[in-house]
């Protein structure tokens, strides 16, 4: 995945069973963001893998004032890349479950 300057990691072990997963997002390279992002630190949240889209979460983060509107696409892409990896991994490790 392209380096967006925004890091998204699992905030918990993934057992492949839960429909939701805890993720943690933080800015590694603020220069890659268009808007001035506050020094937010790490933002942890729960993501419903089946029901939600990364764009929903990215927009909520902008609404909550963590990021500037102009960065919503970068935030959404960063989350999307991590979610895709989680789903790819789940299908490989627990094929029977998926």
């Amino acid at each position: 995945a392209e380096d967006t300057g925004v890091r998204v990691e699992l905030a918990e072990e993934d057992d492949g069973r839960k429909s939701s997963i805890a993720l943690r997002l933080w800015v590694e390279d603020a220069k890659k963001l268009k808007g001035k992002s506050k020094d937010n630190g790490a933002i942890e949240f729960t993501f419903e893998l089946e029901k939600e889209t990364p764009d929903d979460v990215a927009q909520e983060m902008v609404d909550a004032g963590f990021f500037h509107e102009s960065d919503v696409k970068i935030i959404a892409k960063s989350i999307r890349d991590r979610v895709a990896l989680i789903q790819w991994r789940r299908e490989r490790i627990w094929p029977m479950l998926h």
Partner: peptide, 27 residues
């Protein structure tokens, strides 16, 4: 503890904490 919680109007909770030093990329 230096955690703060922000709840979005749609109901999602965001827990904000300092990024561990080890995870910060050298600037």
């Amino acid at each position: 503890n230096s955690f703060t919680e922000v709840v979005h109007s749609a109901g999602r909770r965001f827990i904000v904490s300092p990024v561990p030093e080890s995870r910060l990329r050298e600037q």
